[in-house]
């Protein structure tokens, strides 16, 4: 029985065409590419709300314009860095 299956596999392997090989390789390559890109572009939906709340808290103490607040999220091999950069005015109110 096992011998039969092996023969069958061997038989299939021999018959696998160049186009099938291309398709099999592409399916894997494309799946990996999509997964990588999905990981990169994924921005948690709460991020914008969190940003607004942080700015509200800051503004309780210091008046900062919108463009003085920079917010970025970086991912690198499983490590996430959330960077919040607020430029305070020279003459804080």
């Amino acid at each position: 029985m096992a011998l039969n299956i092996d023969w069958l596999k061997l038989f299939r392997g021999e018959r696998r065409t160049s186009a099938q090989l291309a398709k099999d390789r592409l399916m894997v390559a494309v799946a990996i590419q999509r997964a990588e890109l999905a990981g990169k572009s994924q921005v948690p939906p709460y991020l914008q709300k969190m940003r607004e709340e942080i700015v509200t808290v800051v503004r309780k103490y210091v008046q900062v314009p919108d463009e003085a607040v920079q917010f970025s999220l970086q991912r690198d091999r499983g490590l996430e860095v959330l960077e919040l950069n607020i430029t305070l005015p020279e003459h804080a109110a």
Partner: peptide, 16 residues
């Protein structure tokens, strides 16, 4: 070439 199995077929590309 598709018929000979040497080239991806239109269905292969559509599927991917």
């Amino acid at each position: 070439r598709v018929a000979k199995g040497e080239m991806l077929s239109v269905d292969d590309v559509k599927e991917i």
